[in-house]
Design a protein around this nucleic acid. Sequence first.
DNA 1: TGCACCATGTAAATAGTTACATGATTGC
DNA 2: GCAATCATGTAACTATTTACATGGTGCA
Lengths: 185, 185
Amino acid sequence: MSLPHALLAALLERPGSGSELASRFDRSIGYFWHATHQQIYRELARLEKAGLLESLPPESGRGRKRAYRVLPAGRAELARWTASAVDLAPSRNELMVRIRAEAIVGPTGLHEELERHLRLHEAKLALYEQIQQRDFANRELTRGQRLQALVLRSGIESETQAVKFCRDALAVLAEDDERVDTAPR
Amino acid sequence: MSLPHALLAALLERPGSGSELASRFDRSIGYFWHATHQQIYRELARLEKAGLLESLPPESGRGRKRAYRVLPAGRAELARWTASAVDLAPSRNELMVRIRAEAIVGPTGLHEELERHLRLHEAKLALYEQIQQRDFANRELTRGQRLQALVLRSGIESETQAVKFCRDALAVLAEDDERVDTAPR
DNA sequence: TGCACCATGTAAATAGTTACATGATTGC
DNA sequence: GCAATCATGTAACTATTTACATGGTGCA
């Protein structure tokens, strides 16, 4: 399972509280391993119980930040996990199931949904490219930065591919689905 | 949720029993929405209870095939779902988390794991290309077949990208991780 | 002082995985 | 007739999502 290890990695980069981690997840590591704040709080508590993290509890109980920090055992566990063997994750791509269904029971209104996804993927792509420019363009990179840049580039390529897929699918749908696409392309 | 709809789609293409669906999932639609036989049996029972499927129960109780068929309500539900709006699936790519961790606590032995993934993705890519040749090359395609071909091509591109990613990551690791990669490239 | 918001959580429901069980058929 | 296998399931567990709750802070 990746969430605890994603949290260990994030906390090693910079210690912080649950809510800080939640908002950092929304920006960086969460692009590749999403988690809600509920999951994060629960998992932080587990990791602390397991002796991989420690926290400075806030003075006044609830409603105040609790700062977490990785213990040596946590760093060791992260290193162990990083190199451990796992199977390929079983793929689950809902859009592909929909296209498949469209091929059988269509035409449906899948058209509009694809337009919407196209825009979402374009936005994500633009965001990643902006981050790439900001953080990795025209400079010498350390080993760690080269690896991070690689992960980001993989995200850019995935989004590029998703954009292309939506466009191609829309083209196929437009060929004979004029009910939905009233204006010619 | 996609599983019930993936099952409806599969059963509309061809009615069948739970085990037939499970083995078909291992070949076709399961490349994009994986499910175990336990999930499939549970979901088929639910769909029947909901009036979207019917089944011819075997004469002799357990251990015999139970043939499922989609009812009109099931087809309608599939069409409704196909065009319905959903958010982008939150991404979860464990390998990216590992690379990120390697960037922080590395070098670990991630090298070998990447080699293994590289081979798995190469095998999957070869399989998809073989299916493409067999089912879609050099022939006129119907609308449904063009959509299916598109899904397959998307799979081919994803695997191509995964292969490239593994190679690039291995190259970065090899630059300064000579402990693991004893021979120069 | 009261209202919006923030940080931390709890609870319940759903989805997916893993381990195991049972009856039927098939081939030796 | 017995072992291997197939088809169908049950049970328990883990992961994830969704909805809600509670205490604290800051500011109008």
